[in-house]
Deep mutational scan, measured.
Amino acid sequence: LSQDQINEYKECFSLYDKQQRGKIKATDLMVAMRCLGASPTPGEVQRHLQTHGIDGNGELDFSTFLTIMHMQIKQE
């Protein structure tokens, strides 16, 4: 990932990090990914979360979000 991409991801991540705690809700993951041009299915989002041990009510930090985005873009 280039620095530009990382900055773009950070900007989008921040939109969903409403309390500015450095985390977004798992329920916002799909929308955040789509905001960056990825098109994950609900099943793919579920798999990404399970891979990282996050349940549907959990939260993920930016580095986890980056990893998930990277995996998603590689497979699209």
Rank of each mutant, 00 (worst) to 15 (best):
Leu1Met: 14
Val45Phe: 04
Glu8Arg: 13
Lys10Trp: 07
Thr27Gln: 11
Asp4Thr: 06
Tyr16Cys: 06
Glu11Phe: 07
Gly22Asp: 08
Glu11Gln: 14
Leu49Arg: 03
Ser2Glu: 11
His48Asn: 07
Phe13Lys: 00
Leu36Ser: 12
Asp4Tyr: 07
Thr27Val: 10
Glu59Leu: 14
Asp17Met: 02
Gly43Val: 10
Lys25Pro: 11
Glu8Thr: 11
Gln3Phe: 11
Cys35Met: 14
Ala38Phe: 14
Gly56Met: 15
Lys23Ala: 13
Leu49Phe: 03
Leu66Trp: 07
Cys12Glu: 04
His70Ala: 05
Gln20Pro: 01
Ile68His: 01
Ile24Cys: 03
Asp28Pro: 00
Thr27Phe: 06
Thr51Ser: 02
Asp17His: 01
Ile24Val: 07
Arg34Pro: 02
Lys25Thr: 10
Ala26Gly: 10
Glu59Met: 02
Lys23Asn: 08
Gln19Met: 12
Gly53Ser: 05
Glu44Gln: 02
Gly56Asn: 04
Glu59Tyr: 03
Gln5Thr: 13
Lys10Met: 12
Val31Asp: 15
Ser39Phe: 05
Arg21Asp: 10
Phe65Gly: 01
Tyr16Ser: 02
Phe13Arg: 00
Asp61Ile: 02
Asp61Ala: 15
Asn57Pro: 15
Arg21Gln: 09
Asp17Thr: 03
Lys25Ser: 12
Leu36Val: 12
Arg21Trp: 02
Ser39Met: 15
Leu1Thr: 13
Ile68Ser: 02
Phe62Glu: 07
Asp61Met: 02
Gly37Leu: 04
Asn7Phe: 08
Ile24Lys: 00
Phe13Gln: 00
Gln5His: 07
Val31Pro: 11
Asp61Leu: 05
Glu8Asn: 13
Leu36Thr: 11
Arg47Val: 15
Glu8Lys: 14
Glu59Gly: 06
Ala38Thr: 14
Cys12Leu: 13
Leu29Pro: 00
Lys23His: 10
Gly58Leu: 03
Leu29Ile: 10
Gln20Thr: 07
Phe13Asn: 00
Gly22Phe: 01
Glu76Leu: 09
Glu11Tyr: 10
Ala32Gln: 01
Met33Gly: 01
Asp17Ser: 05
Phe65Ile: 02
Val31Gly: 14
Thr27Cys: 09
Lys74Ser: 04
Arg34Trp: 03
Leu36Trp: 02
Met71Arg: 03
Leu1Phe: 15
Ser2Asn: 15
Ala32Arg: 00
Asp61Lys: 15
Ile54Met: 08
Met33His: 00
Cys12Thr: 15
Tyr9Lys: 02
Ile6Lys: 10
Ile6Tyr: 10
Gly37Phe: 03
Gly37Cys: 05
Asn7Ile: 14
Ser2Arg: 08
Glu44Val: 07
Met30Cys: 11
Thr27Glu: 13
Ser14Val: 05
Tyr9Trp: 14
Gly37Ser: 09
Tyr9Thr: 09
Lys23Ser: 10
Asp61Tyr: 15
Gly43Ile: 04
Ile68Pro: 00
Tyr9Glu: 03
Gly56Trp: 06
Asn57Gly: 14
Lys18Val: 07
Ser14Asn: 05
Asp61Glu: 04
Ala26Met: 03
Met69Asp: 00
Gln3Glu: 13
Leu60His: 00
Leu60Gln: 00
Ala38Lys: 08
Ala26Gln: 04
Asp4Asn: 08
Val31Trp: 05
Leu66Gln: 15
Gly43Ser: 15
Gln3Cys: 05
Ile6Pro: 05
Arg34Ala: 12
Tyr9Pro: 03
Asn7Arg: 12
Leu15Lys: 15
Glu11Thr: 14
Val31Thr: 13
Ala32Gly: 03
Asp61Gly: 10
Phe65Met: 03
Leu66Asp: 05
